[in-house]
């Protein structure tokens, strides 16, 4: 008897619970989104996965929830980004020790596929934009010595321009090739992203809808001669 009477009540309670929970989630996320957008004026917004999915291979790809990173965590800067590359577009060196030099990839993707906070460095792991390529050590090497074999006249070439727009208020051009860098969010969103180039709107994931590669832009010359009928 008692179970029969309790059933509808329980159902209502559960339903009410869901509604409340849903509202909390909805407004909470909205609030966070707003705070993220608003903060763009002073500093960038970014995304953070609430679970810090380090070492979790099954975790979803770059998270969409927006929040602040850990206070005091080291922030990646463009200067650091370029200090690890011989030129813009060169594969970055590996700035940390690798346990097993005898592997083409010593679990690199465990950290670099989804990123996350690493207490050891008090920083967020950079995410690779090409996790499908498993032969990591083909391009990425350690640096075990600081010296040069001989002096060099090589200087780091000019860095690609940032913030270029075709018309005022228009979307920014992409100043680099997309080859092996098709996952924009790997570098432009999330707590591991480079501070100067973080997207103000990471929740809009169809980046190439508005942003085009500005590299090698040539002015258009029509081949059609209007005088010829």
């Amino acid at each position: 008897m008692s179970t029969k009477q309790a059933s509808p009540l329980t159902g209502v309670l559960i339903l009410a619970g869901f509604v409340v929970l849903g509202m909390v989630v909805f407004f909470g996320v909205r609030a966070r989104l707003q705070s993220g957008t608003a903060s763009a004026e002073h500093g960038p917004s970014w995304m953070e996965h609430p679970l810090e999915p380090r070492m979790k291979k099954t975790a979803p790809p770059p998270p969409r929830t927006v929040s602040t990173p850990r206070p005091g965590a080291k922030v990646r800067t463009l200067q650091e980004f370029y200090s690890r590359r011989a030129y813009a577009g060169a594969p970055p060196i590996i700035p940390h020790a690798v346990e097993n030099d005898g592997l083409i990839s010593d679990g690199c993707l465990n950290c670099h596929q989804e990123g996350g906070y690493v207490p050891e460095y008090n920083a967020y792991t950079p995410i690779t934009p090409h996790p499908e390529m498993g032969n990591c050590r083909q391009c990425h090497v350690l640096q075990v010595s600081a010296g040069l074999f001989v002096e060099t006249e090589w200087t780091q070439p000019d860095l690609p321009p940032r913030g270029r727009q075709a018309i005022p208020g228009g979307p920014l051009e992409i100043p680099h090739s997309l080859q092996f860098r098709e996952n924009c969010l790997a570098c432009h969103a999330g707590p591991q992203a480079i501070i100067e180039i973080r997207s103000s709107h990471p929740e809009r994931t169809n980046c190439l809808q508005c942003h085009v590669v500005g590299d090698n832009m040539q002015s258009f010359k029509s081949q059609i001669d209007p005088r010829v009928k």
Partner: peptide, 30 residues
């Protein structure tokens, strides 16, 4: 670009265009 920055900053509050001025380098010759 420079005038665009000023215009855009006035038109779209909350979006920083400060980055534009930093872009002194060019890859047009590459």
């Amino acid at each position: 670009l420079t005038s665009a920055c000023a215009a855009a900053a006035a038109m779209v509050p909350g979006v920083s265009f400060g980055r534009v001025q930093e872009a002194g380098t060019t890859d047009r010759g590459l």
